[in-house]
Amino acid sequence: MKNTNEYKSPIAALLWSVMMTGFGQFYNGQYIFGALLFIFEIAANGLSSLNMSILHSFHGNTQQAHDVFDHQWGLFYPSSYAFSIWQAYNKAIVINCQQEKRDYPKETYLTGFFILFVIGMNLGVYYHHHLLSGIPFFSSPIFNGLSWGFLFGITGHFAEKYIKAKRNIGKD
């Protein structure tokens, strides 16, 4: 019998989703939703040849990493990956509010980070031969996508904090 009043750590949910799309949902008890995200991850990963591109990237074979990677399927991956992480984190917060019989937060968390993370990853994956192509690390669609994703994501996080701070100043 499962304890329904079990605290769900938002950070643990986030980290499980970082490990594999859908695992944060499993942690939160959303088994069907987690399974659907996991199946989509397996399909997008396989159809885009993401793992082969990662392997070639780690070996420094940036041209092979580019050639093996199917961009049409690969551009789906950042969205599902980021959504899984964002949703698991925010759902853990909601679960804890339900258990403590508190009102749900009126906002979501890390939204700016993940929206711009997806945009940055997609731009980095798609334009990896054009942006900083002289540097081998950035010639890989995977490493370039992750680098631009984190850069955009951090920018989005600070923009979201700035907007929320401005909104709260106006309420005083």
Rank of each mutant, 00 (worst) to 15 (best):
A44Y: 13
I32A: 07
L50K: 01
A88I: 08
Q25H: 14
L37R: 01
T111F: 11
T108F: 12
N90H: 12
I39C: 06
I54L: 09
V118F: 11
F76D: 02
M52N: 15
I95H: 00
F113V: 08
S53Q: 00
H66F: 03
G60K: 00
S48V: 01
Q25T: 09
S84G: 15
D70K: 03
S80K: 05
V94P: 02
Y104C: 00
F26R: 03
F114D: 05
V118S: 07
G74F: 03
C97W: 02
I95K: 00
D70W: 00
W16K: 13
N45R: 04
Y109H: 14
G24Q: 07
A12Y: 04
T111L: 15
T111A: 09
N61A: 07
N51R: 02
F69G: 11
T62W: 15
F114P: 13
E100H: 13
L37D: 02
S49N: 15
T21Y: 00
I11P: 10
N61K: 13
Y81I: 03
A43F: 14
F58W: 10
M52C: 08
S49I: 01
F58N: 13
W16L: 12
N96T: 08
M20W: 01
L47I: 08
G22D: 09
S9L: 03
N51I: 01
Y31G: 10
H66Q: 12
E6H: 06
Q72H: 12
Q87R: 13
I32G: 02
Q25F: 15
I95A: 05
N90M: 13
I32T: 05
N45Y: 07
F40Q: 00
F33G: 01
A13P: 04
A88Y: 03
F113T: 12
I39R: 04
F33L: 09
F38H: 06
T111N: 10
Q63Y: 02
T4K: 03
P105S: 14
A65K: 06
T62R: 14
F76P: 07
L37T: 02
G24M: 07
L75M: 08
L75V: 10
D70S: 03
H59S: 12
M19H: 02
F69H: 07
R102H: 10
Q72G: 15
H66P: 00
Q64I: 01
L116D: 08
H56N: 15
Y7V: 00
L110N: 05
M52E: 15
N90D: 09
T111D: 10
L116N: 02
I54R: 06
G22Y: 08
I119C: 00
G112R: 03
I42R: 06
M19R: 04
S49Y: 05
I93V: 13
F83Y: 13
Q99W: 12
A92G: 00
N96V: 08
L110E: 11
